[in-house]
């Protein structure tokens, strides 16, 4: 029983951190459709750096840095220019898939040629590591909750998400706020995606762009109304589901493909449930989420 629970930790940490970062960024009013592509890119960069340096932590840090650079880019362009957030996000999603294949395939060949054992470049899944992983993820969630609820930065982020025009009139620098939200949000997405290749899967697979874990994290965040503490609940639910796909599959007598389909169906169902219940009103999306922000005349 304990073993099974511990096995969930890498999956939980990946989903929770990615969903947290995504929700935090979207609170500032930027629609984040780049999530799956940049999740794949982060996971690939973590794998590449870890395999070349044989130090998983360099991979983790590198992935966070690269992803947060993308966060800055998205926040800056989406706020400074009157662009479609959706198109911007989707373009970066495809760019993320492309970049991760261009980066990942040579590294994968290198790992194969050198006959590197995954244990030399991934994080060993010992009990201590997993406990630290779990505790640190929960701590990050609590800190984010505190930042959003109790600090000036949190108020500024929420104001930029609700109505950037009003926020600006009240003296909030919307661009700066969103860039900060982008850096923090995407650093967490980078962190979570690094755990995907270095702890959860212990390796990289060229079909990584087909898995759609970024979209599952998207649904995890949405079904919890982007609240860091509630996200813990939805993330554990999906982590359990994905981790024990096999158990679920056998218990219900399903085939492998139906089990693979299950997280997506549950994701769609949970988003629908969230929207038809009173939760939607209590934890509505930021009012200006995804709306281009244009002041009549402005400097670049």
């Amino acid at each position: 029983m304990i073993e099974e629970l511990i096995g969930i930790v890498p999956v939980f940490a990946t989903y929770y951190l990615v969903a947290l970062g995504h929700g935090f960024f979207e609170k500032s009013g930027v629609l984040n459709l780049a999530i799956d592509g940049l999740f794949v890119l982060g996971a690939t960069i973590a794998f590449a750096l870890a395999a070349y340096t044989l130090n998983p932590w360099i991979g983790v840090i590198g992935s966070s840095i690269v992803c947060s650079l993308f966060g800055v880019f998205i926040a800056y362009v989406a706020t400074k220019l009157p662009v479609s957030h959706g198109a911007l996000g989707l373009s970066l999603m495809f760019l993320g898939y492309g970049l991760s294949l261009v980066v990942g395939i040579p590294v994968s060949n290198y790992v194969y040629a050198k006959a590197l054992n995954p244990s030399t470049y991934t994080v060993p899944a010992t009990d201590t590591v997993l406990v630290v992983l779990l505790a640190s993820s929960i701590l990050i969630g609590v800190v984010l909750h505190y930042v959003l609820d109790r600090t000036k930065l949190g108020a500024m982020i929420k104001a930029s998400g609700e109505d950037p025009h009003v926020a600006e009139a009240l003296g909030v620098d919307v661009v700066r706020t969103r860039v900060i939200a982008g850096v923090i949000g995407y650093a967490l997405i980078g962190l979570g995606s690094a755990y995907f290749t270095l702890v959860w899967r212990s390796g990289w697979d060229p079909k990584i762009y087909l898995l759609g874990h970024g979209w599952i994290a998207f649904a995890i965040s949405l079904a919890a109304g982007r609240q860091p503490i509630l996200t813990m609940l939805t993330a554990s639910l999906f982590a359990g589901l994905v981790r024990h796909q096999y158990v679920v599959q056998v218990a219900l007598g399903l085939s492998t493909e139906i089990a693979k389909m299950l997280p997506f169906i549950v994701a769609l169902a949970s988003m629908t449930l969230f929207y038809v219940t009173p939760f939607k009103r209590k934890m509505a999306s930021p009012k200006s989420l995804g709306k281009p922000y244009y002041r009549e005349e402005r400097t670049v």
Binding site: L81, P82, V83, S84, L95, Y97, G98, L101
Partner: peptide
């Protein structure tokens, strides 16, 4: 050289430049 990678790169890059370029059909700097 990995065809999928290159198709995705083209798609992402062209969509990105399109998204930004389209701004200039309605706005000017």
């Amino acid at each position: 050289l990995g065809g999928t990678a290159i198709v995705f790169l083209f798609m992402g890059s062209v969509l990105l430049t399109y998204t930004v370029a389209k701004v200039f059909s309605e706005y000017t700097i």
